[in-house]
Simulated assay, not measured.
Amino acid sequence: MIYATGISFYKNEGNKNLKSIVRIQLESTSDESWRLDEKVIKGWYEKEKIHDWLKSNKEKDFEIKIKISPYSQLEPVENNGVKYVRAVADETLVNNLLELKNYYES
C-alpha cells in the first residue's frame, strides 16, 4: 500500500487548502509492487504528478491512502485548470489530506 504521510505549503501561504498544497510525502509498505522508474515510491512528490498517476492508472487499481484513520483513498481532481488531489469524502468535517502533518517550503 502507498500512503500519504505529509503535505507541504509555501512558507507564506495564508490560505491552506487542497489547491495550495505544493507536494505530498508518500511512503510504501514493504509488500507494495508499484514502482516509479524502477524505484519504490517514497519521498516528496508534486500534487500534479500524483494527480496524473492516479488518473492514468485508475483501471490498474493504483491507489494511495491517507495514513490516518479512516485511511481515505486519494482521488484526482481538476478545477479551472488546476490539478490536485483530495481524500474521498467521508464523515469528517475537514478533508483528511489536510489533517496530515504540514511542512513548509521556501
Results as ranks from 00 to 15, higher is better:
Met1Thr: 15
Ile2Asp: 01
Ile2Leu: 14
Tyr3Trp: 07
Tyr3Ser: 09
Ala4Arg: 06
Thr5Ile: 12
Thr5Trp: 03
Gly6Phe: 00
Gly6Met: 02
Gly6Ala: 11
Ile7Glu: 08
Ser8Thr: 13
Phe9Ile: 10
Tyr10Asp: 11
Lys11Asn: 11
Lys11Met: 04
Asn12Lys: 11
Asn12Pro: 01
Glu13Asn: 11
Glu13Thr: 14
Asn15Glu: 10
Asn15Val: 11
Lys16Met: 06
Asn17Cys: 05
Leu18Trp: 05
Leu18Val: 03
Leu18Gly: 01
Lys19Ser: 10
Lys19Glu: 09
Lys19Thr: 10
Lys19Arg: 09
Ser20Met: 00
Ser20Pro: 01
Ser20Lys: 04
Ser20Asp: 00
Ile21Val: 10
Arg23Ile: 00
Ile24Val: 14
Ile24Ser: 05
Gln25Ala: 09
Glu27Ala: 07
Ser28Arg: 10
Ser28Gln: 14
Ser28Ile: 15
Ser28Met: 15
Thr29Val: 12
Ser30Val: 06
Asp31Lys: 09
Asp31Trp: 08
Glu32Ala: 11
Ser33Glu: 12
Ser33His: 10
Ser33Arg: 12
Trp34Tyr: 13
Trp34Asn: 14
Leu36Ala: 08
Leu36Thr: 05
Asp37Met: 13
Lys39Ala: 06
Lys39Arg: 13
Lys39Ser: 10
Ile41Trp: 07
Lys42Pro: 01
Lys42Ala: 14
Gly43Glu: 02
Trp44Leu: 12
Trp44Ala: 15
Trp44Phe: 14
Glu46Tyr: 07
Lys47Gln: 15
Lys47Ser: 15
Glu48Met: 07
Glu48Trp: 04
Ile50Asp: 06
His51Trp: 12
His51Tyr: 10
Asp52Arg: 12
Asp52Gln: 14
Asp52Thr: 10
Trp53Cys: 04
Ser56Met: 09
Ser56Ile: 05
Glu59Tyr: 13
Lys60Gly: 04
Asp61Arg: 15
Asp61Lys: 14
Phe62Trp: 15
Phe62Gly: 03
Glu63Met: 09
Ile64Gln: 01
Ile64Asp: 01
Ile64Phe: 05
Ile64Thr: 13
Ile64Tyr: 03
Ile66Met: 07
Lys67Met: 05
Lys67Ala: 10
Lys67His: 10
Ser69Lys: 10
Pro70Gln: 12
Pro70Leu: 12
Pro70His: 05
Tyr71Trp: 08
Tyr71Asp: 15
Ser72Trp: 01
Ser72Asp: 14
Gln73Tyr: 02
Leu74Gly: 04
Glu75His: 00
Glu75Lys: 12
Pro76Phe: 07
Val77Phe: 07
Val77Leu: 07
Glu78Arg: 05
Asn79Gly: 00
Asn80Arg: 08
Gly81Ala: 05
Val82Glu: 08
Tyr84Cys: 08
Arg86Cys: 01
Ala87Gln: 00
Val88Gln: 06
Asp90Pro: 02
Asp90Leu: 02
Thr92Ala: 08
Asn95Leu: 01
Leu98Phe: 03
Leu98Asp: 04
Leu98Asn: 04
Lys101Asp: 13
Lys101Phe: 02
Asn102Glu: 08
Tyr104Arg: 05
Tyr104Phe: 15
Tyr104Gln: 04
Glu105Trp: 11
Glu105Thr: 10
Glu105Arg: 05
Ser106Val: 02
